[in-house]
Amino acid sequence: MDPTLRTRIISDIKEGLPALPRRLRTVAKYVVDHPSDFGLDPIRETARKAGVSTYTLVRLAQRLGFGGYDELREPFRHALVSASAGVDQPEWIERLRENGRLGQIQADASMNTLAIVQRSLECQVPEQMQRVVEMLLTACTVYLTAVRASYAMAYYLHYVGRMALPTLQLIPRHMNSAIDELHSAGESDVMVAITFTPYSRETIEACKFARRKGVKLILISDSEIISPDFSADETIIVSVLSTHHFGCYAGSTALIDTLIALLVARGGEAAKARIKSYEDLRRENHVYWVAQKKR
Rank of each mutant, 00 (worst) to 15 (best):
L219E: 05
L5P: 01
D41I: 10
Q292E: 15
I13A: 05
F38H: 09
V81M: 13
G267Q: 06
N112A: 10
V290C: 13
A178Q: 06
T138V: 10
L219F: 00
I13E: 00
S242K: 13
D37K: 10
I226Y: 02
V31D: 00
D222V: 12
M175E: 04
E134G: 13
V125S: 10
F66S: 05
V192F: 05
R295G: 13
Q128M: 03
L102K: 12
Y249L: 05
I220C: 03
Q104C: 02
G67W: 09
R8G: 02
Y288T: 09
F209L: 01
A261I: 00
Q89P: 01
E91S: 15
R23Q: 11
T46A: 00
P18W: 10
T235C: 02
L72E: 05
T113C: 15
E74H: 15
F209A: 12
L64K: 06
L241V: 03
R131D: 05
A19C: 04
L80K: 03
A178N: 02
T195S: 15
K213V: 03
L182N: 12
E205K: 04
F230G: 00
R131F: 00
A154K: 10
K293T: 04
V81R: 14
R8M: 15
C140I: 07
L40R: 15
L281G: 08
S177E: 09
G267F: 00
F246P: 01
Y30L: 01
L136S: 07
L241I: 11
I194Q: 10
P228A: 01
S184Q: 13
E134A: 14
R63T: 10
V287A: 09
L40W: 04
A206S: 03
E45Y: 06
V31M: 09
Y278S: 06
T113A: 15
E74A: 15
T113V: 15
H244V: 01
L170R: 06
T7E: 00
S231C: 01
R63W: 09
R22W: 12
R59K: 14
R131Y: 04
D2A: 03
E71P: 00
A152S: 12
Y69V: 04
S252K: 03
A193Q: 04
D33C: 06
I93P: 05
R44W: 05
G51N: 07
M175V: 04
P166Y: 06
L24E: 11
P166G: 02
A152E: 10
L241M: 14
T145F: 02
N112V: 13
S53K: 12
A261M: 00
A250L: 05
L20W: 10
Y55W: 07
A164N: 02
M175K: 03
S36R: 10
P18C: 12
K213R: 11
R211C: 13
R295D: 12
A154T: 08
L121M: 14
R282Q: 10
A271G: 08
R63Y: 13
Q292I: 14
P198W: 01
M163L: 14
S188W: 08
H245F: 13
S36V: 14
R25C: 04
N285Y: 11
A139W: 06
P3E: 12
R211W: 07
M191C: 10
A254H: 12
I218K: 08
R201D: 15
L24H: 07
M1P: 08
V81S: 09
